[in-house]
Structure formats: C-alpha cells, structure tokens
Deep mutational scan, measured.
Amino acid sequence: ATNIVSKVKWYNSTKNFGFIEQDNGGKDVFVHKSAVDAAGLHSLEEGQDVIFDLEEKQGKAYAVNLRIK
C-alpha cells in the first residue's frame, strides 16, 4: 500500500524505532530510524501526522518512504 496517512503512536529515538497507528484499525506499523533518516528527520513525535508506504518483509509490516503530512 502507498501514501497511507496516519499518526505516530510512539517513537523512541534512543532505541531507534517506533510504531505508527493504522487508521483502518489494522496492526501498528513498525518504523525504523533508517526510514526517519531517509525522510531527513531527526525523530518523530507522538501524534505526528505522517504519510508512508507499507512494505512487508518476512511477514512484518514496515513503514518506508516516510514523510510529514
């Protein structure tokens, strides 16, 4: 899926990962520091509106092509 609009559930800049809620009630989506860095960001804030693409690797959903709404 591409261009999903949602909100950051939480992000831990010390552990370099977090999760984004899915508005459709699906499972929370993992977001890694590499996606945050690629977006030119230093961190994410809880409740922040984001747009991302969903990529599945080894049966897990990852946020990629992250951008701020």
Rank of each mutant, 00 (worst) to 15 (best):
N65I: 03
K33N: 04
N3V: 06
T2C: 13
A63S: 02
S34F: 11
K57N: 11
F52W: 09
A38C: 09
G40E: 06
D49I: 15
V64R: 07
A61D: 07
F17M: 05
F17S: 01
Q22P: 14
I51F: 07
E46H: 14
G40F: 06
V31F: 11
A39F: 03
K9S: 04
G40L: 06
S6G: 15
F52Q: 01
N16W: 08
H32A: 05
G18L: 03
D37G: 08
Q48N: 06
G18E: 00
D53P: 00
F30C: 04
S43C: 14
F30R: 02
V8A: 02
V64P: 02
I51T: 10
K60T: 07
R67T: 05
K7C: 06
V31C: 03
N12L: 07
Y62G: 04
V8T: 03
V64F: 06
E56I: 15
S43R: 12
V36S: 01
V8W: 02
N12G: 05
K33R: 11
A61M: 14
Q58G: 14
H32F: 05
A61E: 11
V64E: 04
E56K: 12
G47H: 07
K69V: 14
D49R: 13
E45Q: 13
K9Y: 03
D53R: 03
A38M: 09
N3Q: 08
L54R: 08
G18A: 02
S34C: 11
K15I: 11
S6E: 02
I68Q: 07
L66I: 12
I51L: 09
Q58F: 14
Q58E: 13
K57I: 11
E56Q: 12
E46W: 12
I4G: 06
I68W: 07
D23Y: 15
E56S: 11
A39P: 00
A35V: 09
N12R: 09
Y11P: 00
N65T: 03
S34K: 10
N12S: 14
A38Y: 08
W10G: 01
T2Y: 13
A1Y: 12
K33W: 10
F30K: 02
A39M: 06
D23C: 15
I20F: 09
W10M: 04
V5A: 12
L66E: 00
I4E: 04
V64S: 07
Q58M: 13
N65P: 00
Y62Q: 11
V8M: 03
A1N: 13
L54A: 03
D49T: 15
S6W: 09
L44A: 00
Q48M: 13
G47W: 05
V64Q: 05
G18I: 03
N65C: 06
K33V: 08
N16E: 09
L54M: 10
E55N: 08
I4A: 06
K33G: 09
F17G: 02
Q48D: 10
V8Y: 01
V31P: 01
D49G: 12
L41I: 10
N12V: 06
E46I: 13
E55G: 06
H42T: 13
N12M: 08
F52T: 01
V8K: 01
E45Y: 15
H42S: 13
K7M: 05
K60Q: 09
S6Q: 05
K57L: 10
E21L: 15
K33Q: 11
L54Q: 04
